[in-house]
């Protein structure tokens, strides 16, 4: 079902946490609400679920405006960060609870519970209590409980935050598989960009109660709307250099980078350089000194202090033999550099 937030506003007392937010999630799409802590992701999610009262705007499920509808009548499935399983009930009873309060027959509940338990692969755990499950298994139970009533929208609030790295990767693809198989419209709240990029059709990047950019993951990475987006996506993160653009483009330290092209005559600007676009034999060579090396196994991450000031990160395949302290003359691939105004606008 298509979900639309139209001018959604939320206040806590006098502070406006979300101000007139617009968001459309297409039918069957999975979208990520990505942003730093405190930007209003959970607030938005809880408002969609009906757990927070809405202070303005509309929330449309299909054609129906549910902004004033109680949580019980919205048909939303939520997976919480701490799973919020009912500790005194077995897995089967947990999953059946949404059906039970709707007065489903025992046979019907049993059939649906088995069906959904099969889908999330916990069929053999049905008689256990939540305390007897691992984190990943609890996660699957929470997912099953959210899905069993065939919700209009599935909401996931940082569902992977409590899992260890390996399990997180496994559950990432699991959740995505289940979402695709059920074709349910879903919103994933996360502050982990890898999660957002790997699981979702589109990402809505939030900042201080508003959405800065909505785009497909690759598009957002390759074409960030502003400096904030560019800085948020990418790990290791992008590096920024102060530069000046008159008839040619040069760094603040003086080194010339080449023709200014469309940037001509803009004065002081900032350049964003991703680590993969800086390295040996890429574009104009710049003098610099390696000041730090992080070994990541398959590849090495270098931090380079440029002779004229400013720092860049480079990522190279392991085994380059470059050590901290070495002077290098690596270059920047100027075709892949983002330019930003001093206020952070994309140029």
């Amino acid at each position: 079902m298509r979900l639309v937030l139209d001018g959604f506003t939320k206040r806590f007392g006098d502070t406006t946490v979300i101000d007139a937010l617009d968001l459309t999630v297409e039918d069957g799409e999975m979208i990520a609400l990505l942003g730093p802590s405190g930007c209003g992701k959970s607030t938005t999610l809880f408002a969609i679920a009906g757990l927070h009262r809405v202070d303005g705007g509309r929330i449309l499920f299909g054609e129906r405006d549910v902004a004033q509808v109680s949580a019980q009548e919205r048909n939303v499935g939520i997976v919480f960060q701490n799973y919020a399983l009912y500790p005194h009930m077995t897995v089967a009873q947990n999953i059946a609870f949404p059906l039970r309060v709707r007065g489903a027959s025992v046979a019907d509940m049993d059939r649906k519970v088995r069906e959904i338990a099969g889908l999330v692969q916990i069929g053999e755990l049905l008689e256990r209590k939540p305390a007897q499950l691992s984190g990943g298994q609890q996660q699957r139970v929470a997912l099953a409980r959210a899905l069993v009533r065939k919700p209009d929208v599935l909401l996931l609030d940082e569902p992977l935050a409590n899992l260890d790295a390996k399990l997180r990767m496994e559950m990432r693809s699991e959740i995505r598989r289940v979402q695709l198989e059920t074709g349910i419209t879903a919103i994933l709240v996360t502050h982990d960009q890898v999660e957002a990029m790997s699981m979702c059709d589109r990402i809505a990047l939030m900042k201080a109660g508003g959405i800065v950019q909505i785009a497909e993951p690759a598009e957002m990475y390759d074409n960030p709307a502003d400096r904030y987006v560019a800085g948020f996506l990418g790990n290791p993160p992008i590096a920024f250099l102060d530069a000046v653009s008159d008839d040619i483009l040069r760094l603040a330290g003086g080194a010339a980078l080449g023709a200014a092209g469309t940037l001509q005559g803009l004065g002081p600007i900032a350049l964003g350089v991703r680590p993969e676009h800086y390295g040996p034999g890429k574009g104009v060579p710049l003098d610099g000194t390696v000041i730090m090396l992080e070994t990541h196994g398959r590849e090495d991450l270098f931090e380079v202090e440029l002779a004229g000031g400013g720092r860049l990160r480079a990522i190279l395949p392991a085994g380059s033999g470059v050590r901290p302290g070495t002077t290098v003359d690596w270059g920047i691939d100027m075709t892949r550099v983002f330019a930003f105004s001093p206020e952070g606008r994309r140029l």
Partner: peptide, 11 residues
């Protein structure tokens, strides 16, 4: 969250 889950579950 237990109560929030319960309410969204329709109780």
């Amino acid at each position: 969250e237990i109560e929030m889950a319960g309410v969204t579950d329709g109780a």
